[in-house]
Design a protein around this nucleic acid. Sequence first.
DNA 1: CGTGTAGTTGATGCTCCTCAATTTTTGTGG
DNA 2: CCACAAAAATTGAGGAGCATCAACTACACG
Lengths: 238, 238
Amino acid sequence: LININRTMLKAAKVPVVELSYGRGETVYERGTLPQFVYAVEKGTLYRFRSAPRKRRAILQFLFPGDGFGYEIRRRHLDTVQALTNAKVLAASRDALLAAAASDPRLSSLLFSCAATAATAAEEKAVMLGAKTATERVARFLLEMEARLSTGGVIDLPMRRHQIAEHLGLTTATISRVISAFGRKKIIQVRGLQQRQIVIQDKQRLQGLTSDAFDLDSASILKPRKNVKGRRVTGFARD
Amino acid sequence: LININRTMLKAAKVPVVELSYGRGETVYERGTLPQFVYAVEKGTLYRFRSAPRKRRAILQFLFPGDGFGYEIRRRHLDTVQALTNAKVLAASRDALLAAAASDPRLSSLLFSCAATAATAAEEKAVMLGAKTATERVARFLLEMEARLSTGGVIDLPMRRHQIAEHLGLTTATISRVISAFGRKKIIQVRGLQQRQIVIQDKQRLQGLTSDAFDLDSASILKPRKNVKGRRVTGFARD
DNA sequence: CGTGTAGTTGATGCTCCTCAATTTTTGTGG
DNA sequence: CCACAAAAATTGAGGAGCATCAACTACACG
């Protein structure tokens, strides 16, 4: 299911090129003509839109198996850049559609891929609907764990600033929340630039994603301050 | 472009049923099996996900020409309900895919529809990325104008509460921002339940969507209070 | 004419942004 | 390998913006 994009491109009887990108290099840019459909082979990339005053919105981080370039417009609205050294497969969109015309299986796969892209975008919208920073970061960490944890360790390829642009928050807030999670022993942060994360109490983290009202979300950011009037749970202690 | 979904369903050589729904009736529910692909014929519907503690996220309002049911999962993750009396076209997903196998044109259309759904979801994510309530509401009004204005009048089919659930805000905030827009003569609000809106100064509204820093966004919600230190523009007056 | 629902508006407090200082890490050249 | 500069991350103080709670108005409907 997760490698459906890669599978599709390889199954199609169309020429597929493998492209390599170095850190920071651009795959395609906003305003260019969308000609290809891509699938990540190796490394991490990210898609973003830039708003006027140097505000950027990172729509998606792309990991091996992820597809991109499915959006249909006359021009690309977004830009894709490599976050680390990366390899991607690319196939001509027209060729794919032509091949799909004679191959029912491919046609179905193509539809699935586009539909998957839609679901992913919607998932992101739901995440941004989460009101508190605590909730967003918790969701993000769990998603990253699912995508790129190896041996219980999440090796984040992105900076705090990029996480912030992805979640609609600021670097400072991301840092505060992650530090608080660490203090609460929900996660353990380590490694260069604090980019390695181990989830120690997954259940508590999951509890924070759905509804922070049961827990004392204020205590995450200001653990010392006593909160009056609110329900107090075991979360506040420690 | 906008009626691509309807066009596709009608062009396909598959049985298409027309279904009617009364206000508040459900088209499909979270957890059910996704069997159909739909297109709105008449009326307005909306898609939402409900979070644990009676928090709902409205993913999308559906107007004539819009398609839905393209997300691919084993179960529906969302629920679709009619906001007004509505008619929708429905075709079996399997039948569509089968027909697409022998019809290249249909195959391409199907892909386009799914891709359009992806773009729409992303657009929503970008909107939620907007930090201020002013910006979100401005975007929303402009989108509604594009979708359902007739003779310069936007006839909103949804309540304030539903706008709030769509934008990730509260009813109170929506009301405050809309009132402020009215006071500033950017829009004119009228009709039963203040559901009719006329955009009087589209340019100013558009200015608020992209970057609220040029304008004094604080003055929207607290027009009386003098703001110190910030750039003051023509927007603050009046 | 009361009851219920939707919308508006005010007061207050929490959350996160902003600005800024400090520490840690990265990268560069001697 | 160390010294230095530049960048990233952390942390603190203060304030802006929205949620929350609640009072109030307007209108629909039985």
